[in-house]
């Protein structure tokens, strides 16, 4: 099975540290380099929308799918801690306090450690243009900034007993009014098998479109697992725990028949109430066919060899 290298996702020339992104250095140069590396693209970058912050290094993902606009990415959010309405999250999350912030990494590790946001930003930040496929059958293409989760996990040295990683969002009903709803078992919890967590494609994101994450996108730090449905990519993380048993996520607890642990994007395995065969690409006004593992099959299919994906949904 070929191992994925980061250069398969974002051209190596585009690897810039967060700081140089923020400085907006040579944004145009970078995008033309990135585009020519994609091949077959028009090398002239189009005019950037007025609302776009510092330019990302590419205008498309590796399949040629255009980036979703910054405006859409920051105004269409599933973040039930703030609101069930996607369009309301940005407003309600505006004053969310993301500093100071710490992420406690604990559990079955030799070297438990609490990371401040500045410690997380000290990991070399790189851009990853990923497709995000929501379980509700819509999708976006987002240029994230972040670093592989594997690097953080290596620092804390998981014990051999550790088989899963459990993530937890901040619990603060005063700031997150949605957490007052008794219908869900707050705080939000998600989990990955250790090999999924260590996979090169799995990142902790601290920014998107070259800027720090906005609260509605899961500031200050969130998970991004591009081959799984969006709800796996837990936001505003405060705790990461290495565990032996498969963690029970919030969605598994509230609707076990509908949401499983793996939640891999799969057009063949329908949600019990709707089909996952197609998706609406936000901002493009068109519906496209969904692909197995959200198009990342070459890199991740081996993780699930021999597993019945309709049983392990």
């Amino acid at each position: 099975m070929p191992k994925i290298s980061p250069s398969d996702i974002t051209p190596e020339h585009a690897y810039l540290s967060r700081r140089s992104f923020m400085a907006g250095m040579g944004a145009l140069l970078v995008s033309s380099v990135a585009l020519s590396a994609c091949g077959g693209q028009d090398p002239t970058p189009g005019p950037a929308p007025a609302t776009m912050p510092p330019s990302p290094s590419a205008n498309t993902d590796e399949l040629g799918q255009r980036l979703t606009s910054y405006e859409a990415v920051s105004n269409y959010n599933n973040f039930y801690e703030f609101s069930l309405r996607k369009e309301d999250v940005a407003r309600l999350a505006r004053d969310f306090k993301t500093s100071p912030w710490t992420v406690e990494v604990a559990g079955l590790v030799h070297n438990p450690k609490t990371f401040g946001l500045e410690d997380l930003l000290a990991f070399t930040q790189e851009e990853r243009v990923y497709r995000l496929r929501c379980v509700e059958a819509w999708s976006m293409v987002i240029p994230w900034l972040g670093f592989p989760l594997a690097r953080l996990l290596k620092e804390v040295e998981p014990m051999t007993k550790a088989r899963y990683v459990r993530f937890e969002t901040l619990y603060d009903p005063e700031q997150m009014p949605g957490q007052k709803s008794p219908f869900y078992g707050w705080p939000y919890v998600e989990g990955l098998r250790l090999d999924e967590a260590m996979h090169e494609l799995t990142i902790l994101a601290t920014g998107l479109y070259g800027s720090p994450l906005l609260p509605q996108n899961g500031a200050p730090v969130r998970l991004v697992v591009p081959w799984k449905y969006g709800f796996k990519s837990i936001k505003s993380i405060v705790r990461i725990e290495l565990v032996e048993e498969m963690p029970v996520s919030l969605w598994m607890a509230s609707a076990p028949r509908e949401y499983g642990f793996f939640a891999n994007v799969n057009p063949e395995v329908s949600h019990p109430r709707w089909s996952q065969a197609t998706e609406r690409l936000i901002g493009e006004g068109k519906r496209i066919r969904t692909t197995l593992f959200n198009g990342y099959g070459e890199q991740v299919a081996h993780l699930y060899e021999g597993m019945d994906l309709s049983q392990w949904y």
């Binding site: 329908s270 019990p272 709707w274 089909s275 065969a277 609406r280 519906r287």
Partner: peptide
């Protein structure tokens, strides 16, 4: 607007989706 009258997609969209 959603399925652009793509019949190959629309048929399954109506008959294979429990909520529809």
């Amino acid at each position: 607007l959603d399925y652009r009258f793509q019949w190959d997609l629309l048929g399954p969209a109506i008959f294979d989706q429990l909520y529809v």
